Computed example of a mutant assay.
Amino acid sequence: MKRKVLIVEDEYELALNLKEQILKLGFSVPAVFDNARETLAYLEENSVDLLLVDIMIEGSMDGIGLVGIINKKWGLPIVFSTAYAETELFTKALEVNPAGYLVKPYKMDDLKTTLMLAFSKIDRIEHEVRDSPAFLKVRDKGFLIFLHAEEIILAQADGLYTKIITRTKSYVVRDILKDVEEKLPAKLFLRVHKSFLVNKMHIRSFNGRNAVVDEYTVPIRRGLYKHLQEVVTKRF
């Protein structure tokens, strides 16, 4: 699947040129915006892999303010672009920890190198997490939290989001349930229903219609009863 790069740039011709170049590099560009309001509205309903954000954009909020919100809500990687590399504004932009930056005017090779390095950094971090004990990344009040898989009781689909339930707290992640399922170990989790993924170790009882997972009662799909018997038996 092509990686999605969202462009936030207030120079119309430059934005179109950027889109064309990024497409040539093999990425997709799902949308182009010139202001923070439309960008945030888009991110509420859609997922992207990286944002290319100009520091100076239309509206009352600049690119730095926009990225501050994005960091708190979604933690998405950002590449800044700017014509003001020697200013205090640029120094402030670096404080929000972008995955890279481009100084205008830049060439196709500069764009390619910056995006490749940014995605390489992202891949390395994700690889390190995958190779460690199973964790799920969630965000809570602006903080990035790594939940150990064993802490998770169940996950419930909620449209484009998924509710993650532990014994101490619930979290909402901006992934559909299928994507959450792929990030968790199959040996520990079972999809019992189109809307529920449960930790096998927390299944307390069940019948042909429902399962009690810790203190939660969730529906199960038809025909799962026998498989649940096998799953629970193997725990002992």
Results as ranks from 00 to 15, higher is better:
Ile125Val: 13
Phe146Thr: 13
His127Arg: 14
Asp179Gln: 09
Tyr101Gly: 05
Ile153His: 05
Ile64Val: 08
Glu126Tyr: 05
Ile70Pro: 00
Leu111Gly: 09
Val79Phe: 00
Ile122Glu: 10
Glu150Trp: 10
Leu76Gly: 00
Val96Gly: 08
Gly75Pro: 02
Leu117Thr: 03
Ile145His: 09
Phe119His: 03
Thr114Cys: 02
Gly142Leu: 09
Asp179Val: 14
Arg130Gly: 08
Leu154Tyr: 01
Lys112Gly: 09
Ala99Gln: 00
Lys107Asn: 06
Phe119Arg: 05
Thr166Cys: 00
Ala134Tyr: 05
Gln156Cys: 11
Leu76Phe: 08
Val180Ile: 02
Val96Trp: 15
Ile69Thr: 10
Thr166Gly: 10
Met116Asn: 05
Glu86Trp: 13
Lys178Asn: 12
Ile165Gln: 01
Gly142Thr: 08
Pro98Tyr: 08
Ile165Leu: 10
Tyr171Phe: 06
Glu88Cys: 01
Asp62Ile: 12
Lys183Gly: 03
Lys112Val: 01
Asn71Phe: 04
Leu89Ala: 06
Glu182Gln: 12
Gly75Thr: 00
Val103Ala: 04
Tyr161Gly: 00
Lys107Phe: 07
Glu181Asn: 11
Lys169Glu: 07
Leu66Ala: 07
Ala134Leu: 06
Thr162Lys: 12
Ile70Asp: 01
Phe146Asp: 04
Arg174Gln: 09
Ala118Ile: 04
His148Met: 12
Gly75Tyr: 09
Ile152Glu: 02
Lys92Glu: 14
Lys137Arg: 15
Asn97Val: 15
Asp158Thr: 15
Lys163Ala: 13
Glu151Met: 05
Tyr84Phe: 11
Ile165His: 11
Thr91Ala: 13
Lys183Tyr: 13
Lys104Glu: 08
Gly142Ala: 01
Thr113Gly: 01
Leu160Cys: 15
Glu95Phe: 13
Lys163Ser: 03
Leu117Lys: 03
Lys92His: 14
Pro105Ser: 04
Val129Tyr: 15
Gly100Gln: 07
Asn71Leu: 05
Lys169Cys: 06
Lys137Gly: 09
Arg139Trp: 03
Pro98Gln: 02
Asp140Ser: 11
Glu126Lys: 07
Ala134Asp: 13
Lys104Ser: 04
Leu76Ile: 15
Lys104Leu: 08
Glu95Gln: 14
Ile164Glu: 03
Leu160Ile: 14
Arg167Phe: 00
Ile122Thr: 08
Tyr84Pro: 15
Arg130Tyr: 02
Val173Gln: 06
Phe143Glu: 14
Asn97Ser: 14
Leu94Gln: 07
Leu111Arg: 00
Tyr161His: 12
Glu151Phe: 10
Glu128His: 15
Lys169Leu: 04
Lys141Arg: 15
Thr87Val: 01
Arg124Cys: 13
Ile152Leu: 06
Lys163Leu: 14
Arg130Ala: 14
Gly65Leu: 11
Tyr171Gln: 05
Glu151Arg: 00
Arg139Asn: 00
Ala118Ser: 06
Leu102Ile: 07
Asp158Lys: 15
Gly75Ile: 04
Arg167Gln: 09
Asp175Tyr: 11
Leu115Ala: 10
Leu111Ala: 05
Lys112Phe: 03
Arg174Pro: 11
Met116Ser: 10
Pro77Lys: 10
Leu160Val: 15
Glu128Leu: 15
Pro133Phe: 07
Met61Ala: 12
Pro77Ile: 02
Ile122Ala: 00
